[in-house]
């Protein structure tokens, strides 16, 4: 359900990688991406996050706990508000199931329902389903350096390899040179049109790594200020039992 969070997580996991103490000058774009994927896919994470959605009718806050194994498998459990509490969502590769305690039904989300915005956020289910292994699916190019939010950044440009099945044809990262944290990500359509934008406002350190604390996910085609996500806490390299990613776990 926390689609924004998930999408953000995919980029944010790649942000994690940039914190690696190797100087970026020594690495090619491909190497950076490989490290992103290696790092990302090997680790399990358990996090609690808050999503703040500002709509025309005011602001809503949604919290959830999420278990993730790489980008392929995630399990989300909503904690608040009361209406969403107990709602669970399981994503395994390109399949998505949702469970609500009120209905006691497990329903697979498919077709045009995937295009719906979830939680009223700027992200859709399609965004949620997005889980590319960046080094396999994208060609990368370090296009230069820029100062972003008063930090010196490398600018990385990723373009989908021919035939790869990815949602965004190209991506652009602004990576902090010191902390190796991407402070901004732009997501583009095949035509080169900017579709989504992730920007970090605040960072924090977890186990010696720099992490985004607060960031915004914005569908640039839509009106509004976007959806804000705050990582309340995160446990990295966590052991997550396999049953967590089963349909049975949704009903538990």
């Amino acid at each position: 359900m926390n689609a924004i969070y998930m999408t953000a997580l995919s980029c944010f996991c790649l942000l994690v990688l940039f914190f690696s103490p190797v100087w970026a000058e020594d690495l090619s774009g491909e190497e950076i991406l490989k490290r992103i994927d290696d790092n990302f896919l090997s680790s399990g994470s358990i996090s609690v996050s808050t999503m703040i959605i500002t709509g025309r009718r005011g602001t809503r806050t949604i919290t959830s706990r999420q278990w993730a194994q790489g980008t392929r498998k995630t399990f989300t459990h909503f904690l608040s508000p009361p209406r969403e509490k107990g709602t669970k969502m399981l994503k395994i590769e390109d399949a998505l199931w949702i469970y609500t305690p009120a209905t006691d039904r497990l329903i697979k989300i498919a077709g045009h329902m995937l295009r719906q915005s979830l939680m009223g956020s700027d992200a859709s289910y399609e965004d949620f389903m997005e889980d590319p292994e960046l080094n396999k699916t994208y060609d990368v190019n370090i296009s230069g350096t820029e100062t972003y939010l008063d930090r010196a950044c490398y600018v990385l440009e990723l373009t989908a390899k021919p035939g790869s099945k990815v949602a965004y044809h190209s991506r652009k990262f602004w990576v902090d040179k010191e902390r190796f944290l991407a402070l901004r990500e732009d997501l583009f359509a095949k035509s080169g049109k900017l579709l989504k934008k992730v920007t970090i406002q605040e960072v924090f350190r977890v186990d010696g790594r720099w992490y985004p604390k607060r960031f915004t996910f914005k569908d640039v085609l839509k009106d509004g200020d976007g959806t804000q996500i705050i990582i309340d806490n995160i446990e990295l390299d966590a052991e997550i039992p396999e049953y967590m990613f089963s349909k049975a776990a949704l009903r538990r």
């Binding site: 359900m1 009120a102 209905t103 719906q116 979830l118």
Partner: peptide, 12 residues
Amino acid sequence: SATMYGSMTLHN
């Protein structure tokens, strides 16, 4: 369906 705030909702 979707709630008025855009969340997906299931109802029996």
